[in-house]
Design a protein around this nucleic acid. Structure first.
Length: 300
DNA sequence: AACCAGGACACAA
DNA sequence: TTGTGTCATGGT
């Protein structure tokens, strides 16, 4: 209840421009892989690696502004995967009409490399929710349990994503108050597993995709789909292939028209057909289906 | 106003 | 191994 606001101290800002190619920042940040980006007048802002950051794309330039003072931008380059050669990846896609159209409609769509825990927790609370709702829930979690992070003057209060440790101190009721519903106990128990060190998220990176997948699925509330999301969006396993209702319908109608496809057959198809970067292909199809129906609410 | 959403789980057949 | 009901919440 402090009345005296001690924010008088001005926040140091640093900025840097990155030259990019084949990068569609808007498509990437709004494609349902990360849930904390908001856009105002072409400027995207969020909290990455515990720092407030704002991004603006102008053609082949992405300019970044952050509250951190240091000159090391590895955290952002890694997050945005600026070193990834996208055309090389797209070259590995099967050259069918569907993917050709999907790539054409959102060329420059990328995969991010997010924080393991934030991505895992976000997708645990994502099941049978629309993306706007997931964004809302994540924001509530951050506001109530996340550490405050410095922001420039004129920017509202911002919080980091809460650690697993911090969430273990929350009650199920408090999590339900963040609109998590039946997912609340899943998130709470998973946070406990992580906080207690029963599952070390940092160790999954070096193992195989299959091994990491099995490990993640030992967590309550984490099935094959959510595990694959985390493996693709946080660990960067390029073959992880999350199948949600959109992807299932899309593949059914695009690749198996007028034919009922069993789960098993679907899995074999997605594992073999799309190649060594199937996860990227998946994201293109997902984004294509979503933007085809709902005209992208482009922020401009 | 119904229908459905970046699902997982326990349980049935 | 595949099918069904259940769990909350609120957008469209």
């Amino acid at each position: 209840m402090g009345i005296a606001s001690t924010d008088a101290e001005s926040v140091a800002l640093t900025e840097k421009s990155f030259s990019v190619s084949d990068y569609d920042l808007a498509a990437t940040l709004s494609s349902g892989q990360a849930f904390r980006w908001s856009c105002q007048q072409g400027a995207w802002s969020s909290v990455v690696a515990g720092r407030w950051v704002q991004l603006i794309q102008n053609g082949d330039t992405i300019s970044a502004l952050t509250t951190a003072r240091d000159s090391n931008w590895n955290w952002l380059e890694d997050y945005l995967q600026l070193n990834v050669n996208l055309p090389e990846i797209i070259r590995t896609f099967p050259k069918d009409a569907v993917l050709t159209e999907a790539v054409k409609s959102s060329n420059g769509l990328r995969l991010l490399k997010q924080n393991h825990w934030e991505c895992l927790a976000s997708f645990i609370l994502s099941s049978t929710k629309q993306i706007v709702q997931i964004q809302h829930c994540v924001e509530l979690l951050c506001q109530r349990f996340g550490e405050r992070v410095p922001t420039p003057e004129g920017v509202g209060i911002c919080h980091a994503f809460p650690t697993a440790q911090r969430l273990t101190q929350a009650s199920e009721a408090e999590l339900r108050a963040c609109k998590l519903g039946f997912r609340a106990p899943y998130l709470l128990k998973s946070a406990q597993q992580i906080a207690q060190g029963n599952l070390r998220l940092d160790l999954l990176q070096s193992g195989s995709l299959e091994e990491a997948r099995l490990q993640l699925m030992t967590l309550p509330g984490v099935g094959p789909k959510i595990a694959d999301c985390v493996l693709l969006f946080a660990y960067g396993f390029p073959r992880a292939f999350p199948v949600d209702v959109w992807i299932y319908k899309a593949i059914q109608q695009l690749y198996f028209p007028n034919r009922r496809v069993s789960n098993q057959r679907m899995q074999k198809f997605t594992e073999s057909y799309f190649g060594s970067n199937s996860g990227y292909a998946q994201q293109y199809i997902f984004h294509y289906m979503r933007t085809k129906i709902r005209r992208t609410q482009q922020c401009k």
